[in-house]
Each structure stands twice: as structure tokens, then as C-alpha cells.
């Protein structure tokens, strides 16, 4: 019984780096994290999250509350590791909008850089998530 359990564990341990690579390719999870032994393979792809408010059709700066900052950082850190396995921040944008009654809408810009191995140039991907009042 013990022998079988150890063998199953070792098979999982052996297969995991390949599963991890597939998850990186499919969902852009962070190669440095989740024990895929891919640290130092590519630049550590941290994400950045920027908030823009919308009022009367114009883009305005948002005076973020401590709660906003905490939730933004929390999402940003999770997204930086889980990639597309973490859902888009629609609920977060709605929560920020609910805390700022002076705004008509909120746009979250999530950006993430990577190094293109073919060109060796830095690439940025930007994802927009919008929330607006009905």
C-alpha cells in the first residue's frame, strides 16, 4: 500500500513539470511559480493593474481608497501567478465603481510583459475590463 502510494506520488511529481508547461502555454500562468521548476527560464512576468475612471464620457483619475488598493493588489498578485485561470476582474471593476458614486464607469487596464524569444524584444499585452452604471 505504502509502496503504491509512493509510486503514484512520484509519477505525479514527474509529470507535473510538463503539465505546468502546458498550463503556461494555454493560460499564461507564471512559469516561476507553482513548482514547475521553470524559474529563471524567462523574465518573471509580473502584471500591472491601472484604474481609470469615466465621468460624462471623459477619462478621469480615480482617488483610490485603501480598500480599492488592497483588492487591486490582491487581484494583481493572483493574476500574476494564475494567468488566465484567474477570471477577468469584472467584479473588481464593479466593486470599485460602487465605492465611487461620482463616476459613471471604471476601466481596469491589466498589462503584462514578456520577452519574445524569436525577436528578443519586450512585448506588452494589455487587457481592458470595463464596468459602467446601468
Amino acid at each position: 500500500m505504502k509502496r503504491r502510494a509512493v509510486i503514484v506520488f512520484l509519477v505525479f511529481f514527474t509529470a507535473w513539470p510538463l503539465v505546468h508547461r502546458a498550463l503556461v502555454a494555454a493560460f499564461e500562468i507564471n512559469p516561476w511559480k507553482l513548482a514547475g521548476w521553470a524559474m529563471f527560464c524567462v523574465p518573471n512576468p509580473s502584471t500591472k493593474l491601472r484604474v481609470q475612471g469615466v465621468r460624462h464620457g471623459l477619462e478621469v483619475q480615480v482617488d483610490l481608497t485603501d480598500r480599492d488598493r488592497l483588492e487591486l493588489n490582491d487581484y494583481n498578485l493572483r493574476r500574476g501567478i494564475l494567468g488566465a485561470l484567474e477570471p477577468r476582474p469584472t467584479e473588481l471593476a464593479e466593486a470599485i465603481l460602487a465605492r465611487h458614486p461620482e463616476l459613471d464607469g471604471v476601466v481596469l487596464f491589466l498589462s503584462r510583459y514578456s520577452l519574445d524569444p524569436r525577436t528578443a524584444l519586450l512585448e506588452w499585452e494589455v487587457e481592458e475590463t470595463r464596468a459602467s452604471r446601468p
Binding site: 512520484l10 513539470p17 508547461r21 512559469p31 521553470a38 529563471f40 524567462v42 520577452l115
Partner: peptide, 26 residues
């Protein structure tokens, strides 16, 4: 011992698969 070999081999394999070490990009 198997764990040791898997980790060592995987670090090399991941570098190969991610492709940022062939011309010193990383």
C-alpha cells in the same frame, strides 16, 4: 534520488521549451 533527477532535468527542459536561453536572451 528520483525527485532530485526530475527537478534537475526539468529545470533544463523548461529552459529548452521556453526558448529564452539559445542566444542568451534570459
Amino acid at each position: 534520488r528520483w525527485i532530485t533527477l526530475v527537478v534537475l532535468f526539468s529545470t533544463g527542459l523548461q529552459k529548452l521549451l521556453h526558448g529564452c536561453w539559445f542566444r542568451g536572451e534570459f
